[in-house]
Design a protein around this nucleic acid. Structure first.
Lengths: 191, 191
DNA sequence: GTCTATATCGCGATAGAC
DNA sequence: GTCTATCGCGATATAGAC
């Protein structure tokens, strides 16, 4: 059972994550976080010893996607659809973390460790794709790099729609964006 | 002929752009820019009346891509290849500007005006693609959104490779990245 | 056109009482 | 576990001499 302290710590983290992904790390002040969490700055520093500490904590995944299916019997096309859906679900469920990671990793490279250590676990669908690449059923392609690109594309499109007020929340993936991604990945476009 | 002042102004701008895209706007101080341009901060403020001013100036395009071909006779596949090559060339030649734009636009939405006003001019290849979408030769797709996604993907992949030291310069597009983009766009993958 | 000096502010972080 | 008060610093921007 969580103590009062645990709850406070969690509340601070939730506020920090929210601010980091909406305003960016540099533009968020510790005073703002403390205010949001209804606590003094001094008290906050008992839970997290620095702002950087809070950044690291804020990119840890909060939701996980189950992936226990057997993909070996699927056609290439079915596999791709499953793989994409799985990938999108994982990203969508942890979108704030992905946005912080991709926005701040150049400046704070230690964050990228989190990406590889916790987000880029290979799913069964990934492994099946890798296998088919090896056997020549898919062309050779760096899957990690490709996933990085897909996330970059997703985030850029969401931000674009938010800036032009065609979408009002950074924390969900608009249908239009999913549409573009699916079209491109499945090769429906330009063929 | 450029006066001494013109040259100084240009030098300040070049240094600022370089720092903004490598370190980010917030993390770059005006002192740093002035030092890099071998001038005092006070003098710098005679040329640009604020740091934000400098940000706006730093995202203006510096290189332009000629596009005078006639694309109407090309096959779909040839058109796609031309379109992608043209697009990549434009992005690569103005990569610092794109990186600043895509990194800072959420925080400073006035920047996005620059994107639509100066970078997103429709090329002849774009127009030909649009035409074929209308006539049903390509599936319906928001081309602006798609280009935003492609740039986001490109930048994310470059940053990833730089962070993991597989590429050493934010200012060029590694062959691996071009490879992934071309594969995806041309629909060679997953088909 | 450029400088030195400085105003003013907000930031991250801490001291120490309760 | 939480607070008020404050330190020290570096930031943007300006005043005014040369």
């Amino acid at each position: 059972m969580p103590t009062k302290g645990d709850l406070t710590k969690q509340r601070i983290l939730d506020v920090a994550r929210e601010l980091f992904y909406k305003k960016g790390f540099d533009a968020t002040s510790t005073a703002e976080i403390a205010r949001g969490a209804s606590i003094s700055e001094a008290a906050m520093y008992k839970y997290y010893k620095s702002k950087r500490d809070l950044l690291t904590a804020s990119v840890q995944p909060t939701h996980f996607v189950e992936d226990t299916s057997d993909y070996s019997t699927l056609t290439n096309n079915e596999l791709v659809q499953c793989w994409t859906a799985l990938f999108l679900e994982k990203v969508e469920k942890n979108l704030p973390q992905y946005m912080i990671l991709f926005g701040e990793s150049v400046k704070y490279p230690e964050l990228s460790e989190t990406y590889l250590a916790t987000f880029h676990k290979e799913t069964l669908a990934d492994i099946e794709v890798q296998k088919r690449i090896k056997t020549g059923h898919f062309p050779k392609l760096d899957m990690t790099l490709m996933q990085v690109g897909m996330i970059g594309a997703l985030i850029a499109m969401i931000q674009h729609l938010v800036i032009y007020k065609k979408h009002d929340d950074l924390n969900s993936v608009p249908p239009k964006v999913k549409e573009v991604i699916s079209s491109i990945i499945s090769g429906k476009f330009f063929n």
